[in-house]
Computed example of a mutant assay.
Amino acid sequence: MSDIAIETEGLTKQFGGFYAVQGVNLKVRRHSIHALIGPNGAGKSTCFNLITKFLTPSAGTIRLEGKDITHVKPAALARRGMVRSFQISSVFPHLTCRENVRVALQRQMKNSYQFWTPESVLNALNDEVDAILQSVGLFDMRDTLAVELSYGRKRLLELATTLALKPDVLLFDEPMAGMSTGDIQRVVDLIRTAAEGRTVLMVEHNMGVVADLCDTITVLQRGQVLAEGSYEEVSKNPEVIAAYMGGHA
């Protein structure tokens, strides 16, 4: 078995005469944490949405564990073990924190698609739900409606529901956006823990997080790969400094 979990070849997305992503070749090693970074308009989110099948490529190939997923639908991709988060919180606003996580955990039950499941059956998941909520710091808010949470807490709840799906491959779209310093450190610790035995690909602007967390960094500029390597390597690359890093190198 190859040690590459996600691979793209010639990945391209064209909008009219504009190439948002052009000829991107990417290899994400299994059980690593890999970041996509770049200045605004570099094509990070487009590339991310192509890989997770929320956009259709104009050209190129996408593989998951060596299998072509270029034309696989997002729901089918999730069933194959690849789950993503979004920049905008995607939790159910009028369910409690516990209910949100429990919905995700129902996937492992044989009756996961039965809408009229007795609550006594669902309550059997509560211990696991509460453990997940404890891990993201939301246990004390388990009976709070998601709509009543702050933005940062909603992001933590979304992370909890993502982890509850027990994916093999996790993709995070700016997981630290809008979070307080304390919440950022909590999420960094959670991602590091969640990455044990899993593959993580993330888009992230917080360079401190990227430096601390990621094994490999791919830098995009104008839809193309500018550089790739460890944080130490890319942060010293003159082209990266000119395009993105500024005084952070």
Rank of each mutant, 00 (worst) to 15 (best):
F172R: 00
D168I: 00
D130V: 08
D130I: 07
E158W: 10
Y151H: 13
L165F: 10
V147E: 15
R153Q: 15
V147L: 15
D140V: 01
F172D: 00
A177S: 14
V147S: 15
E128W: 09
A160Y: 05
K166C: 04
A131H: 12
N126T: 11
M176N: 02
K154H: 09
R142G: 00
R142I: 05
E128A: 12
D143M: 07
L156V: 02
L122T: 04
Y151C: 05
A160M: 04
R153S: 10
A131M: 13
R155T: 00
E148V: 03
L145D: 11
A164G: 04
F139Y: 14
W116N: 03
L145T: 03
L133A: 11
L163T: 00
A146I: 03
S135T: 05
V121A: 13
D130K: 01
P118G: 09
A131I: 10
L145V: 04
I132W: 06
S120H: 08
T144Q: 13
P175L: 07
L149A: 07
K166G: 02
W116F: 15
P167K: 00
A131V: 11
A146F: 08
M141T: 08
A131C: 13
S120C: 11
Y151T: 02
L125S: 01
L171Q: 02
W116Q: 08
D140S: 11
D173P: 02
V129T: 12
W116A: 04
R155A: 03
A131S: 12
V169S: 02
L157T: 05
S150W: 11
D140L: 10
W116Y: 13
V136N: 02
R142V: 02
T144K: 13
L156Q: 06
L171W: 06
E119N: 11
T117H: 10
M141K: 12
L171E: 10
E174I: 03
L138S: 06
K154C: 11
D130Y: 14
L133G: 01
R155I: 05
Y151K: 00
D127T: 08
A164H: 05
V169H: 01
V147G: 08
N123F: 14
D168L: 09
A131G: 12
L133K: 03
G137H: 03
L145Y: 15
N123Y: 11
G152R: 01
N123K: 10
E128C: 06
E128I: 09
A131E: 15
S150Y: 09
D168A: 09
